[in-house]
Design a protein around this nucleic acid. Structure first.
Lengths: 218, 218
DNA sequence: GTCATCATGTAAGCCGTTACATGATTGC
DNA sequence: GCAATCATGTAACGGCTTACATGATGAC
């Protein structure tokens, strides 16, 4: 789950850990901030497994962007220069992560693999990265989620001992049910949009819009 | 969290583990079934700490309540039948749990204590049991939750780099935001109902309605 | 110069899961 | 008698949190 989120964010551009956390909060549908205690070990693991590479940015180095398009080259140079000039090996410095081809493969695998506790969080995360999926896989994702919600709805209405519940418990159950219905309607809307897109797919293949390959911002 | 749910359900009447699990699914707002691997150890812990007592049905042991009010009548019959028919001490039998005064105290403490990861699940659970709370504590619970959601909303709208997101990520974020707004409106409705109730509190103190002290069903 | 914020990490532990194993009850 | 379901448990493990510890950067 964490791996998927990290790799997905790194597809948009190079980032350091702190920034990854911020984006998880407000780019993904995540309710709560992920903790550093799980983020940094995850990054270390991904680096060890070759899914990402880390370039250690030393103190007082100019940011990437100056003139060129992709930043890591100047970044590496800057890091080297900084290491030469000032401190030999700063104990703590900003580490910028970049996804590798192996990491991209891993990401694709994670994204396509259905997960066993297929809850809302998992689904939201996958949907956030849905532009990396083939249209049919994407549609399957939506349909699978819809089927789950429908299952849950019928299950809830079947039990139907709602009259025995007190006001508060009942209102929680009803609110839950309402939310499920609402989510189903939402999914229906998304699926409709999907089929519309698929009819126009010869015109614009890539559903990505308004996306700038921004480097890690400072 | 689990302890709170278990004890809360046992306040409605005696239950065995399997039934507790079912009620967690459809009486509480729980999305997924709790697993037995966490439920049974939790029950064992609660029993060891004296918060609940377990009467083993069909073990030749008479249930607690011979003549008294609470309704384990069917339990007694089952025990009698089991004693008549077969083995003296079956290795596995249905265990019916009952909350103790100590358990009720523990429940009250858990219910009133605000939790650090104060997420939706925690809130739903507490709200389900809100009839056990004093009106002011209940209102505080609602207000605290509302404040959190509002915080989150402003936080999300502050970041507002939504334009940089692709269609899918953006629609996830927007749906999340919409859900938060909807939840806030829901809470507002609940709080309005609360203040209405408080104006009539001399007429009916106990907000519990339509609740039958059902024994563990078979 | 010091305070808040940014930034990276480690250690301990909780809470829950999956997978496994077993026994009792009920319907046919 | 056999299958499905009800019912109780154990063992191993995983993911994520809190609390702790440290260092760099920028504002004032």
């Amino acid at each position: 789950m964490l791996d998927l989120a990290i790799l997905g964010l790194l597809q948009e551009g190079d980032l350091h850990g702190y920034e990854i956390r911020r984006r998880m909060r407000d780019s993904l549908g995540l309710t709560a901030n992920i903790s550093f205690g799980s983020l940094y070990p995850a990054l270390a693991r991904l680096e060890a497994s070759g899914a990402v590479t880390a370039t250690e940015r030393a103190a007082g180095v100019a940011p990437l962007s100056s003139g060129a398009a992709m930043g890591s080259l100047s970044g590496e140079l800057a890091a080297l220069r900084a290491r030469r000039t000032s401190m030999a090996r700063p104990k703590k410095s900003k580490k910028v992560y970049r996804i590798t081809p192996a990491g991209q493969a891993y990401f694709a695998e994670l994204l396509a693999t259905p997960t066993s506790p297929d809850d809302a969080r998992n689904f939201s995360l996958r949907l956030s990265f849905a532009r990396h999926l083939a249209p049919d896989v994407r549609l399957a994702l939506l349909q699978r989620r819809r089927a789950q919600l429908v299952d849950r709805l019928t299950e809830v209405s079947t039990s139907a001992r709602r009259e025995e519940l007190d006001v508060y418990a009942r209102c929680v159950v009803e609110h839950t049910e309402e939310r499920v219905r609402h989510d189903i309607a939402w999914l229906d809307g998304l699926m409709a949009a999907e089929s519309q897109r698929s009819t126009h797919h010869s015109i614009s293949q890539d559903p990505s819009v308004g996306h700038s390959m921004a480097p890690a911002n400072e």
